[in-house]
Simulated scan of single mutants.
Amino acid sequence: MDTPYGSALLPVWERPEPQPRATPVPLSRAKIAATAIRLADVHGLDGLSVRKLAKELGVGPMRLYDYVINRSELLDLMVDAVYAQIAEDSHRSEWRATVLAIVHRTRDAALDHEWFSDLLGGRPHLGPHALAVGESTAAALSQAPGVRGIDDLQRALGALNAFIVGALRREVTERRTARSTDTDVTAWQAALGPYLTSMLKTGRYPTVARLVIDGAHLDAEATFHHNLITILDGITSRPHP
């Protein structure tokens, strides 16, 4: 396909919308993305296909290819639509407040759309809203007292993003496991409880024993916030040689 960039296809965000057809079902990339998000929220990414999406929209599957050339482009549109939600009302006058707002809105988005966490940490998200969130985050972190140059900023962003990806994937995984009918916690405890008890009684794992016996069930949101603050404190106070 020839484009202004030669044979390379323009990114989905840069291509103009197809001309509307005289059909009973009007389409747009925004409508396609919103419908795909609703399907993925219910069925997950494994339950999302072009055929199912077309049926939900009331059109033939081939018509969708006027708007997205493959499933990867569809995911790009969905991800950027979620970033649009994250970008809303995230800017604050102070750098730390801005980062806190963005990261907590990212967590809210991942809990509302669990499939979103599956796509974090993979290939770069380069849609306009994703770039806007990235710009706001980087601009805020660049004002942190412990960030004195581009190398510091790269490391700070790396640490923050690693925390976000790891924390959100773990929380979403735990939520899925807790409601999964395939995971019988009682049976698991009955099968492995005696083994774990005997291992802890050996005295070789005293810290693990404390965690198992004395550890409380921590609130997920409070723990997320506490750990996020720890990351930001480390960025702020990191000593320089």
Rank of each mutant, 00 (worst) to 15 (best):
V12Q: 03
R15T: 12
Q85V: 08
I32C: 04
H125W: 07
L120P: 00
G149H: 06
T177P: 00
T207A: 13
G146I: 00
E221M: 08
T207H: 13
G47T: 12
L45P: 00
P206Q: 11
R71C: 02
A84Y: 01
S49L: 11
R29Y: 02
A216L: 13
T3L: 10
D151A: 12
I235T: 01
A30Y: 05
V59A: 07
E221V: 14
M1K: 09
R169T: 07
V99P: 00
R21L: 09
G193D: 13
A209Y: 01
L119A: 09
R15A: 08
L64Q: 07
T236V: 07
I32T: 05
E171C: 05
V165T: 14
P145M: 04
I69F: 06
E88L: 09
S72I: 02
Y67I: 08
S90P: 02
A30V: 10
D152T: 01
V42K: 13
I231L: 08
Y67D: 06
G58Y: 02
L75W: 02
Q143C: 13
A159F: 12
A8K: 11
S49K: 12
V147P: 00
G122K: 09
A40W: 00
T173D: 13
R105P: 03
D219C: 11
R176D: 04
D80K: 05
V82F: 01
Y195W: 15
A109F: 01
V185I: 14
R96M: 06
L48A: 03
R169A: 04
W13T: 09
G158L: 08
S49R: 13
P11G: 06
V172D: 00
S117F: 02
D219W: 07
D152H: 12
S117D: 11
T137M: 13
I213M: 10
L228A: 05
D233I: 04
S198E: 14
L39F: 06
T137S: 14
M62E: 13
F116H: 01
L126W: 07
D41F: 00
G149T: 08
G58L: 04
G121F: 07
D214F: 14
Y5K: 12
G127H: 04
